[in-house]
Design a protein around this nucleic acid. Structure first.
Length: 109
DNA sequence: ATAATGACTGAAT
DNA sequence: AATTCAGCCATTA
């Protein structure tokens, strides 16, 4: 089956996001930097936008670098994401997460 | 090949 | 602390 020998940036994003443990979150820029492209934060979010609703990628664990959530002009999706995060035990502080506490860095625990 | 797009980010106001 | 502006770069047409 068509499996690219050189996985696209998006593929790498999905793989990393899938490896984010429950109760932890990562910023778009952090994901991009972990993939070796510290300037491709927007591409990370763009990849999330292309995810189907039945995806196995925990896209809700990827948020803004400042701990807030992305809206993309769809406030409904925002509420859903917040619910998913709270369901994992994350605490919101005025519609924002404490990245210093719940922020996760791969290969470091 | 070029141009437009966009779940972002950091600095300045 | 909140808002605004310009830069960034992979994907799509």
């Amino acid at each position: 089956m068509a499996r690219p020998v050189t996985p696209s940036f998006r593929e790498r994003v999905y793989a990393l996001v899938r490896s984010i443990p429950e109760g932890r979150v990562m910023g778009y820029g952090h994901v991009a930097a972990a993939l070796g492209n510290p300037g491709a934060a927007r591409q990370v979010g763009y990849g999330m936008a292309a995810l189907p609703p039945e995806t196995d990628v925990p896209w809700h664990r990827v948020i803004h670098s400042d701990g807030s959530l992305a809206t993309k002009g769809d406030p409904v999706r925002l509420v859903v994401q917040r619910g998913l995060l709270m369901r994992e035990g994350l605490q919101f502080r005025r519609d924002r997460l404490d990245m210093a506490a719940v922020g996760w860095v791969p290969a470091t625990g």
